[in-house]
Design a protein around this nucleic acid. Structure first.
Lengths: 330, 330
DNA sequence: GTGAAAGCGCTAACAG
DNA sequence: CTGTTAGCGCTTTCAC
C-alpha cells in the first residue's frame, strides 16, 4: 500500500543482523543481549510492524479470534448478546488479541483463515455455520449451549438451576400461583429455564396449568400480549418468573398501569441482571448470568486449544439469585 | 492446522489445469468455459477455500474491514455506537466483507494488517489511534466527526442543523423558555447541537440564560440531576431539547413523577430516534440520525479507496425531525 | 546463537 | 486464454 513499507529485511540491514535474528526477536527466542538491543533499536527507529498475514503464512499465529453471533432481527437489542460481545472484546483486549466479529444475516462470508479460533454464541439459527466450523477443524468454543456428547469445547450456564432456584424462591414466599413468561422455546436456555421452573413446581407439589406458561420472543411487545392473557385468566398468578429482565420490566409497567402493587400483590423475578432495567424506584429481583466469566472462560479455552490440541472441555457456570425488591410473601 | 489442508495445487491437479488457472477462476478472470466448469467442480469436490492471508501476501485483498470504537465505559449502552456497529455489520455482510471490530480499552493492539481499510467512529478519546492510522496510510473513513481541512474521508451528520431545527420547531410552537440538556461537551456532536440550539434562539431574538444549558454525559443519571437543577429554577423552562432519546425519556419519567403533564405543560424533543425509547403511551418527538445511511456511505467510500487512491470525500448527511406526541403549543 | 535457504499458498507478470 | 515462474514477508529447519 504505502510505497515504503518497512519489512523484516530493512530491520535486519539496519541492525546489522540476519532476518532470522529479527524474526527470533519478534518471537521471543533466545538472543545475545547485544543483538537483542540492536534489533530493538532498529525496530523502534523504523517503526516496524510485522505483517500478521505474512507471519501466518509462514506458520505463525494471527492473534485474532472470531466471535460468531447469529444475526436475527433484534440481536442488537439483546442484553445477553451485547454483554457477550462486550466481555469477549474486553477479555481479548486484555490479552492483546484482535476481535473478528461476525453477525450472520443473509450471507455466510466469515473467512475463518482470518482468525486463529472461533467463539460461537448460541442463539437461534447458527447450526449450519457451527457445523462448517467443526468440519474445518478450527479451534472452537461454543458459548451458552449444551452440545451433549459432541466433542466440542463449551462454556454454558446452568439455566435449569437458575429457573429452579427462582421458582423455589417464590414458592418459599408462599406463592403457588406462579406463572412463567418464557423465552423462545427454540432457544435452549429457554427450554432449560422452563424445565427448572416446572421441576421446582413439581417438587413442591404444585400443579402448573398450561395457561401459566406463556412463550415470548424475549420482547416487551410479546411480553405485554402474554401478560394480557395471564391476567384475564379467572385465576391470575400472584407471581411471575420471567425469561429476561426486559420482560420483567414490562411486567412492572403493566402492573403500574393496572394499579397492581408490586411486590405486595404481584411478585416478579427476572433473568440477566440487566442494569438497564434498574430504573425507577423498584429494584428487580433477578437471576444473574455470569457473562463476564463466560467470556473469559471461552477465551481461556480457545487460547489453550490454539496452543495445542486438547480434549474438549465443558464448563458449566452457575447463575446467582439477586434478591432485591420485587418479591414478597403472599 | 488440519493435516490435509486443501491448497490451490490440489485443485489444479484435480482439475487438470495450472494453479494460475485456478487463481484466475477465484479472481473472476476470463476463462474458457470448459476449464471454468472443471475448476468449479474440483473446488466443490475438494471443498477448497483459499487462504485469505496467502492471497493478501501475494497482493490480493482480505475483504475485511476494521471498525474502531472507543472503549469508554458505557459504550455498549450507547444507542449510537450499537446502531453503528449493527449497520456497518449489515452493510459489510451485504458485500461479503468481514468485520474486524476494535474497541479500545487499555491496550492498542489493533493489527491493521488484518484489514483492507478502517472505519473510525468518533467518540471521545480515539485521537491517538486515529493519528496512527493516518500515518500508516491505510484506507480510512471517519464517521461522525468533522475533521475540517484534514485530508481524510469522512461521513458525518449535520448536528448543527439538527439542533437548529428542533429548537426552531419549539419556537414555532410559541415556546421561549427552552432549555437544552446537552451531551458531553468534549464530543463534537454535542457542541454542534448546542450551537444549533443557540443559533435558533438567537435568530428568534430569545435570550438564553446560562442555566438553561445543562451538560450531561448522555446518561439518564446525569439527566436526572440536571433536570433537578432546571426545575428548581425560579423560571423553569416550558420545553426541553435533549441530546438523546434516552435523556428525553428521563425527562418523561421525571415529568410523570412530578405530575407535569406532557406535552401540555412541558414539551420535549429528543435526538436519535431510538426505538427503545418508544414505550409507554407518549411517542417522543425527536431528531433522527441516518445511522444506516452513514454506515453504508462509510462502507462505500472505503471500498472505493481500497480499489484506488482517491481524493478525500466529505459526506454530510441531514437529520430529520420526527414529529410525534411530545411537543405542543404553549 | 546465528545465518542461509527453503517454502508457506497465492497472485501477477511474462511468454506462449 | 493458459502455463511457468518469480516473488510477497515471514518462520523454521539445518548447518555452522
Amino acid at each position: 500500500m504505502s510505497p515504503l513499507k518497512i519489512t523484516i529485511k530493512d530491520v535486519a540491514k539496519k541492525a546489522g543482523v540476519s532476518i532470522a535474528t529479527v524474526s527470533r526477536y519478534i518471537n521471543n527466542s533466545p538472543l545475545k543481549e547485544e543483538n537483542r538491543t540492536r534489533v530493538q533499536k532498529a525496530i523502534k527507529e523504523l517503526n516496524y510492524q510485522p505483517l500478521v498475514y505474512a507471519r501466518r503464512l509462514a506458520g505463525g499465529k494471527l492473534d485474532s479470534f472470531g466471535l460468531v453471533i447469529p444475526g436475527y432481527e433484534g440481536i442488537f437489542y439483546s442484553f445477553y448478546a451485547l454483554e457477550l460481545i462486550r466481555e469477549v472484546a474486553a477479555a481479548l483486549d486484555e490479552k492483546v488479541i484482535d476481535l473478528h466479529l461476525h453477525v450472520f444475516w443473509s450471507k455466510d462470508s466469515f473467512k475463518t483463515s482470518l482468525v486463529d479460533g472461533v467463539i460461537v454464541a448460541d442463539i437461534i439459527g447458527n447450526e449450519k455455520q457451527f457445523k462448517r466450523l467443526v468440519k474445518e477443524e478450527i479451534p472452537l468454543v461454543v458459548v451458552n449451549r449444551d452440545l451433549g456428547d459432541q466433542e466440542v469445547n463449551s462454556v454454558s450456564v446452568n439455566n435449569f438451576k437458575g429457573g429452579y432456584e427462582a421458582t423455589e424462591f417464590l414458592i418459599h414466599h408462599g406463592h403457588k400461583k406462579i406463572a412463567h413468561l418464557s423465552g423462545d422455546n427454540r432457544v435452549q436456555c429457554s427450554q432449560h429455564r422452563l424445565e427448572g421452573y416446572k421441576s421446582a413446581m413439581k417438587k413442591a407439589g404444585i400443579d402448573v396449568p398450561n395457561s401459566y406458561v406463556q412463550f415470548t420472543n424475549f420482547s416487551r411487545k410479546e411480553a405485554r400480549e402474554k401478560l394480557g392473557v395471564l391476567f384475564s385468566l379467572k385465576n391470575p398468578p400472584t407471581a411471575v418468573f420471567c425469561c429476561s429482565d426486559e420482560v420483567a420490566s414490562e411486567v412492572l409497567s403493566f402492573a403500574e398501569e393496572k394499579r397492581i402493587e408490586i411486590p405486595k400483590e404481584l411478585s416478579v423475578i427476572g433473568f440477566d441482571d440487566n442494569p438497564h432495567c434498574l430504573y425507577g424506584n423498584l429494584m428487580l429481583t433477578t437471576v444473574r448470568q455470569p457473562l463476564r466469566e463466560m467470556a473469559q472462560e471461552a477465551v481461556r479455552i480457545l487460547k489453550e486449544n490454539i496452543k495445542e490440541k486438547r480434549p474438549p472441555q465443558k464448563v458449566v457456570l452457575d447463575t446467582e439469585l439477586i434478591i432485591r425488591d420485587t418479591v414478597s410473601f403472599i
